[in-house]
């Protein structure tokens, strides 16, 4: 038994979670994180194409305006993806975690005047639930007695351009690179470039897509801890920016702001690769309670 990871048991009312989720939903919609903004501002200087530069300048102006006026930067305020890391020594009281998160989303989207973009049934009725619930919630048990919540309101323009391929191990690193480049090429101007490219490699089919999404929660532009994957991220970013897609797909030098790769061990017979794209309004907020 590893005593070093043990903490004292602690209680937390789920009301605190509702409150935090509500606040973070509104903040995420209106206040682009500085890490993303920094990359967009750098892109303005790098971009050479007329319409590419024009788009980026408008985007920067929009970021400033939405922050100052507490207005959503994009009308697609997304479906809310929540990554909850729950300490195993934390006891949640007063209700269920899922209900508390959804209540936070409900309140945040109502009080923040955010768009309700979730439909009840994906195929049959496609009726709007009217309060942007339910959120897509992933919980993970971790050591400790705290809860970390990461909130990613995800727009569908970029989400629709995601891709997954179960590669054969023989396809190797080249196969991985080719598939990622292909996914970004096919997405073209649709996902509101410049994008952040989330890549998940390994695990199983489902695990790779989850990793690709989780990669988008990383501080934008922060490199992978492993120098080899860091080099791969840099190489892919360079290759993607040679595609010429540019801001909004109008042609240009900046198609992606960053590439984030996450990996997981996998089966001897497979090599899943998933690509999840985020638009330039790469909204992510987090809190630890």
């Amino acid at each position: 038994m590893n005593h070093s990871t043990e903490t004292c048991m602690r209680e937390l009312s789920v009301d605190k979670i509702t409150e935090a989720v509500k606040r973070l939903c509104i903040e995420a919609a209106c206040d682009l994180p500085e890490d993303v903004e920094k990359l967009i501002r750098e892109a303005v200087d790098k971009e050479e194409s007329k319409f590419g530069k024009y788009s980026l300048e408008k985007i920067v102006k929009n970021v400033e305006l939405s922050r100052n006026e507490n207005a959503p930067m994009c009308q697609d305020t997304g479906i809310v993806v929540v990554f909850a890391e729950v300490g195993q020594d934390l006891r949640l009281v007063g209700g269920s975690l899922t209900d508390a998160i959804n209540e936070g989303v409900r309140q945040g989207y109502e009080e923040g005047y955010l768009r309700k973009s979730v439909v009840e049934d994906p195929v049959l009725n496609r009726k709007n639930t009217g309060d942007n619930t339910p959120a897509v919630i992933y919980t993970e048990l971790v050591p400790g007695n705290e809860i970390k919540l990461q909130i990613l309101p995800k727009g569908a323009g970029s989400e629709n351009m995601g891709a997954l391929k179960m590669l054969k191990p023989a396809e190797g690193l080249e196969g991985v690179k080719n598939f990622i480049i292909q996914a970004v090429t096919q997405a073209g101007g649709n996902p509101c470039p410049p994008v952040i490219v989330g890549v998940g490699i390994g695990g199983t089919m489902d695990k790779s897509t989850l990793l690709a999404k989780k990669a988008l929660a990383r501080h934008a532009g922060e490199p992978h801890a492993n120098p080899e994957y860091q080099a791969l991220e840099e190489e892919l970013l360079e290759e993607i920016n040679k595609l010429g897609i540019g801001p909004q797909g109008f042609g240009g030098k900046v198609t992606a702001l960053a590439v984030h790769i996450e990996t997981y061990p996998t089966h001897i017979a497979t090599m899943p690769v998933a690509v999840c794209l985020n638009c330039h309004a790469a909204r992510h907020k987090e809190v630890t309670l």
């Binding site: 207005a71 959503p72 994009c74 009308q75 955010l114 649709n190």
Partner: peptide, 21 residues
Amino acid sequence: AGPTPAKPGQVIGSCGPTTSG
């Protein structure tokens, strides 16, 4: 386009284009 709800006193909320495809 599908805008966000207008706040009191506003004509419309945020109102950008969606993917035409």
